[in-house]
Structures are given as structure tokens and as C-alpha cells.
Design a protein around this nucleic acid. Structure first.
Length: 507
RNA sequence: GCCGCGUUGGUCAAUCGGUUAAGACGCAUCCCUUUCACGGAUGAAUGAGGGGUUCGAUUCCCCUACGCGGUACCA
């Protein structure tokens, strides 16, 4: 019997949830569901300095909005809690101490200032970033360089210290990444990472290993930026004696800025005018508001569809997938290796597709919400018909109202200038004549109205096309929208006559 | 600097040694529609460079270039 698949999304609650974060969460979710496994949310809040109030709740809300809520989380609980690393603080020390006992870690007393000094002192053109490693640790203040008596003395005096991993001097570490295949590192290239900080909190490196072990994580997905510290994690799994249970790793490609280079950042969104966060995020310290996809009018279905395809595809030409289809088809070995530049135009296309594919009933529901807010009453049946007429011209939900208001209320303004340009007495007579005989129109439907109007125009020697635009403006206020006669049919005879009369009067 | 990872049209990308190198977004032209949008058709546009391996390389290997990531008591 195969071990149950368990994956986790482990964000740091330092602010809004970035596109890339949501995609990592999504891939976790999809992978878990595909294999009938568990999806866990673990909050990595080991850095008190970066803690931001509300960020954790925000992350939860984002996942829920996206429809990828975790099975186990700080909010939902679960058998492997707590799911907040700050609440697991006491737990990490004993593993750090075990490492100490086994000689795989050591205590270091260097102050931040001393570390800074070291980096300057040993900095050369060939080596601009000197590392705290086998070559240098004997020159620093730690249990490797100091005598046992000195260390004991320092400890007795309550000197702050950290615990660092003792990286082997020249060892080859290799592992298989599910996306990239075999990866190898030489340990001499990685430094003695701090495992336990002076405040007693673990660093990411220790916490991720301990928690993944304790929470029985089978597959670990994370951003590519973690690839270079993976040898530390691999070694930790080995030193702690858990090698057999080490999860399979998958380092996801990064989401890049559309122009230029580098990781997509919040700033790029502001600069280029598109959202980067899943939902609106208000920084509690500065009050600064960063817009999100949700508030911009994205459907969660479109949002996750777009994200899923940014770095993954099923090998076919299909691009529109429901969450269920994604769950069924998702496989980690079809994740692209290279980073992908984010393309907002394509993101909008996904949303447009989802709106077009939404049922008229569903769109009508959104329309009814808007009408309620505006204290306008209208029958649901009308909203359903309107929805069918306007949904293909809405990229965002926000465009529903501008594209449909004239069905529910008399336009407040008309583009009169557009009528005046080609207006004359003959045309005026046509409209007057038409509304005058409208009583004779037995069936108030679009095809009937169209036939009647065009026949009359022809009889009066006016090209129907020349009269259509004025009619449209009289009914909808502006030059764009669904078919004129569809509008007339839906707003009814009385309202049609009223709008034509009042516009003619204003000309 | 060093280490790691990557590189198919402007962008997302298929191809897992043999194709006229798919498809999508965007763009252009046309059709439909006497509006806008939708829809349809067509078009421009791609294997970073150099070496190998092979009967045959976009595909495998090496080098170079370029890009990205890392090089914190941040994650």
C-alpha cells in the first residue's frame, strides 16, 4: 500500500499573496486532489520582524476565494498541528540539539556586527560574498574554534548564540527534482546556515525539514529560488536520520515580469497597471492598498485556470479547464522548467472566456445584485435575456452594468452629437411616423420590429443603415451595444416610444 | 566572483532523433454584423551562437553567450 500523499503550501505571512504564491498553492492542491491526498497550509512565521498583522487571515481568504482551501491549516486544525511555526517554537530546539550532539552542528557566538565585519574583511574581487563555511569557521567565534571551557563560559554568561549546520568540506550532494531531474551540488559551495536563531526560533532551513517530517509530507513543492539551499535541507534529512522519509522535491519555475527581467513583483503591477495579488491587500502599517485580481473583476475559475497554464499544460491544445479537469489532468512532470513572463492580456482573455461560458442565469444573478445595489427592480427573466445579449462584450464583471444599464433605466445622457451629424427633417419624419404607427405592430419582437422599421425607411427613401445609428443612440444613449431591435424588444413598446420622443425633442 | 538552474515567434507554449516546427494571446487584413463585441478566414512572426554524436538534430553531449535564482540570525 502506497503512503498517503501529503503536500503543503507554506507561505510566510508578510503581506499580500502574490500570483506565484497562489500558483504554488494551486499546484499543491491539484497534486493532492489528483492523488486523493491531503493539502496542508502551514504558516511560516519564524521571523518576528517581518510579521504582518492580518496576513495569515488574508492568505486563508485567498485560498478560499480560489476554491483551493486546505484540508489542514491553522484555521481548520488537523492531526499534525499546530500549523503555525511560531506555535511550534519549543519543538525545534531538540532537533537542533540532537544535531549538536551528533557533531553535525555547532554553536556560534558571532554578533551581527562581527558577521558584517567578516564579510568585509574577507571580501575580495574573486570572492565578493565570503561564506561562513569550513574555510572560515575556524576564524570565527564558535564551538569549533573555541575551547570547550570558553564555550561553557560563554554559555554560562547567557551569551546569545545561534546553532549552525556544519557543512562537510567537499561532498557531493545529489537528488532528483521532479521537474528538473538530477541536481547536484558540492557542499563546499554552501555555507554553514543558521538553524536556530539567537531568539530561539528556527530558521526556514530547520523548520521546513522538521515540520515536513513531523507532518508526514511526501512531496514538497516550492519556488525555484529555494533550489540553491536544497543541499542544506537534504543534509538535514540525512543527519536527523529521516532520509528514508524525505519528500520528493519539485522546484517550480518563477513567474517573471512581462517586460525586462526578474521575478514579478508587486511594484511591476503598479507600474504596468495590473494586479499581482490575488485579492486587495491593505498594508496595516502604511495603509497602502494594493489591488487584487478578485476586486479587478476576475472570476476565481478564470484566475486559477490562467495560473495553472502559466508553467504547465496537458500536452493538448486545450486551454480552458475547470478545476475538476485540472485536478484530473495535472501532473508534475508536465510542469515547464523555465520561468514564464506574466502576460496580462492573456489573463484578461481567460477571464473573458470564462464570462462568455458562464450561463445566462449565473450572469443574471450578478446583474440582479447590481440592480439591488442600485435600488432598481426588474424581473429576473429580463436579466437572463440581457445577460445573453451582453456577456460576450464583458471582459470583467464590472463591465456588466455599463453594457446593460439602458435595459433597466432610461439613459441619463445621449450622444446627441452623433445623431446631429447626419440629422435632417426627412429622418425626423421617419421616426415620428414609425412611433405613430407602432400601435399597429402586433408582435413586439426584434425580427418584427426590424422588418417594420426597415420597410418604412425604404418606403421613405431613406437607407435603413442611415437611420439605425440614430435609433441606437435614442434607445441606448451611445453608439455601441447589442442589436438595436433586441434592445427595443426588451425595453418594450412604451419605453421605446418614450425614448425616441424625448431624444427627438432634444435635438 | 562563485554555485545552481534555465534558453522554441513579442508572450504562453507543443514536439520526448525523422513534422511544411502545433495551438493560444496579442497584432494585421478580410468576412459576418449598416454599431461594438462574438464568430469565421487569412497573414506576419520561432529553435541564442559554435562544436560534436548520428544516415538524420529543436530534440542527446560539450563549449560560449545571455538570462534568472542563490550567495542573511528573510522566507
Amino acid at each position: 500500500m502506497q503512503k498517503k500523499i501529503r503536500v503543503r503550501f507554506a507561505p510566510s505571512p508578510t503581506g499580500g499573496l502574490h500570483l506565484g504564491g497562489v500558483r504554488t498553492a494551486l499546484y499543491n492542491y491539484l497534486f493532492a486532489r489528483h492523488h486523493q491526498g491531503d493539502f496542508i497550509l502551514r504558516i511560516e512565521d519564524t521571523d518576528q520582524n517581518r510579521y504582518v498583522a492580518g496576513a495569515e487571515q488574508y492568505i486563508q481568504d485567498c485560498l478560499e476565494w480560489c476554491g483551493i482551501a486546505p484540508d489542514e491549516s491553522p484555521a481548520a486544525g488537523g492531526p499534525y498541528g499546530p500549523y503555525r511555526q511560531s506555535e511550534r517554537k519549543a519543538l525545534y530546539r531538540r532537533y537542533a540539539e540532537k544535531l549538536l550532539e551528533d557533531g553535525h552542528a555547532y554553536t556560534a557566538f558571532d554578533t551581527p556586527a562581527e558577521l558584517e565585519e567578516m564579510r568585509i574583511k574577507y571580501k575580495t574581487d574573486e570572492n565578493p560574498s565570503p561564506q561562513y563555511n569550513a574555510a572560515l569557521r575556524k576564524k570565527m567565534r564558535n564551538s569549533e574554534s573555541l575551547s570547550a571551557a570558553e564555550v561553557t563560559d560563554l554559555l554560562d554568561k547567557q551569551t546569545p548564540y545561534v546553532i549552525r549546520i556544519k557543512m562537510p568540506d567537499n561532498e557531493e550532494i545529489r537528488f532528483t527534482d521532479m521537474i528538473r531531474g538530477t541536481i547536484s551540488f558540492n557542499t563546499s559551495q554552501v555555507d554553514d546556515k543558521v538553524l536556530l536563531k539567537a531568539d530561539g526560533m528556527p530558521t526556514y532551513h530547520l523548520a521546513v525539514v522538521v515540520d515536513d517530517y513531523l507532518m508526514k509530507i511526501t512531496h514538497a513543492f516550492r519556488g525555484e529560488e529555494w533550489l540553491s539551499s536544497s543541499p542544506v535541507h537534504i543534509l538535514l534529512w540525512k543527519y536527523l536520520g529521516w532520509e528514508a522519509e524525505m519528500p520528493q522535491w519539485a522546484h517550480l519555475p518563477l513567474i517573471l515580469k512581462p517586460d525586462g527581467k526578474g521575478k514579478l513583483s508587486k511594484r511591476d503591477g503598479e507600474r504596468l497597471g495590473f494586479p499581482v495579488f490575488a485579492m486587495d491587500w491593505k498594508d496595516p502599517a502604511t495603509g497602502e492598498l494594493t489591488r487584487g485580481f478578485r476586486e479587478r473583476g476576475f472570476l476565481p475559475e478564470a484566475f486559477i485556470n490562467m495560473l495553472a497554464l502559466l508553467g504547465w499544460n496537458d500536452g493538448s491544445a486545450q486551454e480552458i479547464f475547470t478545476k475538476e479537469e485540472l485536478t484530473e489532468k495535472f501532473s508534475i512532470d508536465r510542469v515547464h522548467k523555465a520561468g514564464a513572463k506574466f502576460n496580462y492580456e492573456k489573463a484578461k482573455w481567460f477571464n473573458h472566456e470564462w464570462i462568455k461560458r458562464s450561463s445566462d442565469e449565473w450572469i443574471a444573478g450578478k446583474l440582479m445584485d447590481i440592480l439591488n445595489e442600485r435600488k432598481i427592480s426588474a424581473p429576473k427573466a429580463l436579466a437572463v435575456k440581457v445577460a445573453g445579449l451582453i456577456k460576450e462584450r464583458c471582459v470583467f464583471l464590472e463591465e456588466l452594468w455599463p453594457n446593460s444599464h439602458f435595459f433597466f433605466e432610461t439613459p441619463a445622457a445621449y450622444d446627441l452629437d452623433a445623431i446631429r451629424a447626419k440629422w435632417n427633417e426627412e429622418k425626423k419624419a421617419l421616426f415620428v411616423d414609425w412611433i405613430g404607427r407602432s400601435g399597429a405592430i402586433t408582435e413586439w419582437s426584434a425580427p418584427e420590429l426590424e422588418k417594420d422599421f426597415k420597410d418604412l425607411a425604404a418606403a421613405r427613401n431613406i437607407k435603413p443603415g442611415d437611420a439605425l445609428m440614430p435609433l441606437r443612440i435614442m434607445l441606448a444613449g451611445s453608439k455601441t451595444g447589442p442589436g438595436v431591435f433586441d434592445i427595443a424588444a426588451l425595453i418594450g413598446k412604451e419605453e421605446t416610444i418614450k425614448r425616441i420622443q424625448s431624444t427627438i425633442g432634444s435635438l
